[in-house]
Design a binder for these strands. Structure first.
Lengths: 339, 339
DNA sequence: CTGAAAGCGCTAACAA
DNA sequence: TTGTTAGCGCTTTCAG
């Protein structure tokens, strides 16, 4: 393969200066049509492609947006990423991907990426930064937006998960349930804050309805369908089992459905199940769920970032975009048995 | 935020030349310990981070690996991507992501990325290049490896999909089925060649068994669970419906299961279903499937690429890695009714 | 062991 | 309208 042609080669070939070549490259109007054509011809002939790295160095911009997200096993993360990717696709920016598996790794990436010489912008999906890193990020000069994560100092696109948890629980309550379990991830991890908020909403709805919270109705484990199935089995084996289960994600709700099928408990006649997220699979299995706009959250996050990349008014206040939640009632929730 | 410190600032602060700073940055042994320490101190004090772009320009390498894959709705693509990501994570390379939705876009990306000034290496997932682009790629000087795609001139990690299709069909045949349908994506798209090969294997197995191929038993549509469900319904509504369906992907097989449930046909008593891929969901729904190592294919693809990035013996012959397929018999296949 | 200086390929004043 | 030239921040000869 022949060595790559440079702007100098083109200049020589077209008998102009590199400045002129640069001008036509950048669509400067200040170049005579004939000259432009000569340059274009030279470019075509030499098969010239401008070196983006050199361009970036000269411009002082990286043309890169880093997207950081938890290791993307979960459909909801992937869906958000797809939104981001779509919005970024026709832009000038490269989307570079970082997947984090541990809090240490997360902080490592945050530290590494909080530098304008590395990236032009940062998109953090479902990864709430600690105060320390939020501070560093907002002072780094790297525009940052959070998707599905909250920090007061950073732009974000979120939903009101407390309200979501509340409304999901209300739905069950209104059907007449009083024995309502909550099944989720570990709540204590600083990794995921949405889950915890849904739990808060759940507690609030119970309290408001004058129903005592029963600790044995709250179960948690690492995220996953089989894990949820096992948890659900435990719940249903209780001396006084719940008549409804609120799963903090659709994936987990589907695990609950697995358990019910396995044990021979009919949904929704004997057990109501409600999920959260509104992933595609929820529709296929007819799961009642609290739907949030996953794909759109990615799109909006990217858009927000792009916007703050435009007006480099660095110090513009953090934006907040709250996306709507929608209760989608399908076939897995009904009044409790005997009502 | 203070302007970023440069290597010059560090040099000044440490009272050495930039060359020396560069040496300690690159762990050159040719630096006296005392000097090194001074430099290190200066770096710490100024909070200096080397500018990667400048480094890349100087080194003439992009430190970037581009991964191109079809828009990642499908679990199997995501799984492969995860493998790639994991293998690349602790490397010096940035993983930049390109998702293609149309053949035009694919070629656009191929053209753009076939340039050493853009990327150090290229990983194409489930995207067989045309001869023309394969040619361009292999002459571009950009090491390229295909995952789940084949071209004789390019390194690749694949499975033997003809054999997979053959063995999946054999499994059904051996159970005693003779009315076996094949349900897939469009076969004619140059987008996906694996599907077509599975079909070839299917036909071969039938032929070998002396069973005539019935055109009405071969259905196809765009990929997706609901689409597969509709196709399956069509198949089952045939005057002489099949007793077994070989779906070219697990996602589609699950769609078939949806259809059966909806119509009230029992699996496997009345209908056998076999899928392909071995995605996680297949296990949950107890689907018999032809399993291929998806995650590993990504890992291996990345490894292959990394290796050819090492020995820049550009002209090394294309490597081929064939991963094993494994028939996993679960609960969706059984002898046909009345046997 | 250290420094001076050229160069990576491009952009953008500034001059002409 | 076009050309000259000084950077962008780093690496790497080549001298010393």
């Amino acid at each position: 393969m022949p060595a790559e042609a440079t702007i100098r080669d083109v200049a020589k070939q077209a008998r102009v200066s590199v400045a002129t070549v640069s001008r036509v490259l950048n669509n400067s109007p200040a170049v005579r049509e004939g000259t432009r054509q000569r340059v274009l011809d030279a470019i075509a002939e030499l098969n010239y492609i401008p070196n983006p790295i050199a361009r970036r160095l000269s411009l002082g911009r990286t043309h890169t947006i880093a997207v950081v997200l938890p290791l993307f096993t979960l459909p909801s993360f992937v869906e958000r990423l797809r939104g981001v990717q779509q919005e970024l696709a026709d832009n000038e920016y490269d989307l570079v991907l970082y997947s984090v598996e541990t809090p240490q790794q997360r902080d490592e990436y945050f530290a590494k990426l909080a530098s304008p010489s590395r990236v032009d912008g940062l998109l953090l999906i479902s990864l709430p930064p600690s105060d320390e890193y939020a501070e560093r990020l907002s002072h780094s000069g790297v525009p940052t937006v959070l998707v599905d994560a909250y920090h007061p100092n950073l732009s974000r696109v979120i939903v009101d998960d407390v309200d979501g948890g509340y409304r999901a629980t209300r739905h069950l309550l209104e059907l007449g349930h009083t024995k309502i379990a909550f099944l989720s991830d570990y709540l204590e991890t600083p990794f995921q804050q949405s889950m915890r908020q849904r739990y808060v909403g759940y507690r609030r709805a119970l309290e408001e309805a004058g129903i005592d919270f029963r600790p044995e109705y709250h179960v948690w484990d690492t995220h996953g369908r089989p894990e949820a199935r096992e948890m659900a089995k435990g719940l249903l084996a209780l001396p006084d089992p719940p008549t409804a289960i609120f799963a903090a994600s659709d994936t987990q709700a589907i695990g609950v459905m697995d358990a019910a099928r396995e044990i021979g408990i009919r949904i929704p006649e004997q057990l109501s199940v409600i999920g959260y997220d509104g992933i595609r699979d929820a529709e296929y299995v007819n799961l009642t769920t609290m739907h949030q706009p996953l794909f759109e959250s990615g799109v909006l996050g990217a858009r927000l970032l792009l916007a703050s990349l435009q007006n480099d008014s660095q110090a513009n206040a953090p934006q907040e975009k709250v996306l709507p939640l929608e209760l989608i009632v399908r076939k897995t929730t009904a009044p409790p048995p005997g009502r």
